[in-house]
Nucleic acid binder design. Structure first.
Lengths: 143, 143
DNA sequence: ATCTAGTTTAAAATCATTCTAAAGAGCCTT
DNA sequence: AAGGCTCTTTAGAATGATTTTAAACTAGAT
């Protein structure tokens, strides 16, 4: 039974980081508090930096990138691949897919159950499937 | 009835470019001859530049990038999204999916029929589906 | 309180890709 | 085949996201 409710928010996120194998530094806890609060959204290094600034904090650029990568590595975030311009991270790590509208660089979650893969090929010899990503590219009808 | 076999290879690719709405310049024809010969493979700006050099030709870096983008725009190539490090292009523009092994940055085609999407969500209001990309991330079993 | 390995920092470095301005080449018209 | 107009190519500079660097700092164990 989790004692989440008895902990200060800070302690709660520090705990989460420890469980993920990450030393809970001041900046990692601050970023965790922003990204791992259960809300599902998509962030970039840039948008996260903005959030940090808005929260009255400061974390160096390099650390923002490192943290995003470490969180992803640790399974706390998921990297979404839709273009090559910059990295997108999803705070929802559950299995689900995406709509992507290139015109506005808009990414929208698709609930897991809305895509049914009736058949998948076997992974090549000596390999196993780690993840299946479905990206549905959409465009506005009058274009 | 195509007269493909009566044309010189050069004329054949020039024709292909014209049909795609691209002026058949020397460098575009050269690149078309390398990429649009029917063989299915994946290239990067870098690997293509190598091929060009190996063929004893020279095309400036900017033009390689421009051509890759224009061919993609024209539907002669397809951009594959698996990571954010650099762009990958597929000479196979038929509808098909991919296995991606991050360890070796290896991309493998999956025949169209090996993936069956039994159910797809409707596109958000005012939008239509342009393409559905399935990327199956794989890893070697002993890792 | 002390120590040490892991972290953060600001700034420099990297690297793929795009942009720029000038030189060159299709191609239509004569 | 010459002229001309626009689209292309070129080399090099510029951009921008991300990584690296080396030095200053901190979490957590002793």
């Amino acid at each position: 039974m989790t004692q989440k409710n008895r902990m200060t928010p800070k302690a709660h996120f520090a705990e989460k980081l420890r469980l993920a194998g990450l030393r809970p530094t001041r900046q990692r806890v601050a970023i965790a508090a922003l990204l791992l609060d259960g809300r599902h959204r998509h962030v970039t290094a840039d948008s996260l930096t903005e959030e940090i600034t808005t929260a009255g904090l400061h974390v160096s650029g390099g650390t923002v990138y490192n943290t995003l990568n470490q969180f992803t590595e640790a399974g706390l975030l998921r990297r979404v691949m839709v273009h090559n311009d910059y990295s997108l991270f999803d705070t929802n790590t559950d299995h689900h897919h995406h709509f992507y509208e290139a015109e506005n660089d808009q990414l929208v979650d698709i609930p897991h159950d809305d895509v049914i893969l009736a058949q998948l090929p076997a992974a090549p010899d000596g390999h196993e499937i780690k993840a299946v990503d479905v990206v549905i590219h959409i465009q506005s009808k009058n274009s």
